[in-house]
Amino acid sequence: MSRMPDTEAFLRELLIRTAEAHGGYERDVLGGVYDEAWPRWYAAFMARTLAAEGYAIERPG
């Protein structure tokens, strides 16, 4: 598992990338319709992106 550098900056960049990707999804897939389920879409996109980059979120314990 990779160690995250500056966590706040890392998450900010990931959110920006996710928002940009979601904008394309709303435009291209949903035909410009507001996505009521955007939190689910964001979570899935972010989880896939983190996994692809070698990160894992683990519960302490």
Rank of each mutant, 00 (worst) to 15 (best):
Y55Q: 03
R48A: 08
G54P: 01
L11M: 14
I16G: 10
R12K: 13
E8Q: 05
P60E: 15
D6W: 07
L11A: 12
A37Q: 14
R17T: 09
F45W: 07
F45C: 06
P39L: 10
D28S: 12
E8V: 02
R59Y: 13
Y42N: 08
T49V: 04
G61S: 09
G24C: 05
V29C: 08
Y34M: 06
A56V: 15
P5R: 10
P60N: 12
L30K: 12
L30G: 06
R40C: 09
L50I: 03
E20K: 11
F10V: 03
A19K: 15
Y55E: 06
M1A: 15
A47N: 06
A51L: 10
V33K: 12
L15E: 15
A21D: 02
D28E: 15
R12Q: 08
W38E: 05
E20M: 13
E58L: 15
R27D: 06
E13M: 10
R59L: 13
R48D: 15
A44K: 09
V29E: 15
A44E: 15
R48Y: 10
D6H: 02
A52G: 13
G31V: 00
A43P: 03
Y34L: 07
A56M: 12
G32D: 00
M4D: 13
W38D: 05
Y25A: 02
Y34A: 14
L50S: 01
T7A: 14
G61P: 02
L50K: 03
T18W: 07
L50N: 00
D28P: 04
H22T: 01
A43W: 04
W38Q: 08
R40N: 14
F10K: 00
R27M: 03
V29D: 12
S2C: 10
A9K: 03
S2W: 12
A56E: 12
I57D: 04
E36W: 06
P5I: 06
A52E: 09
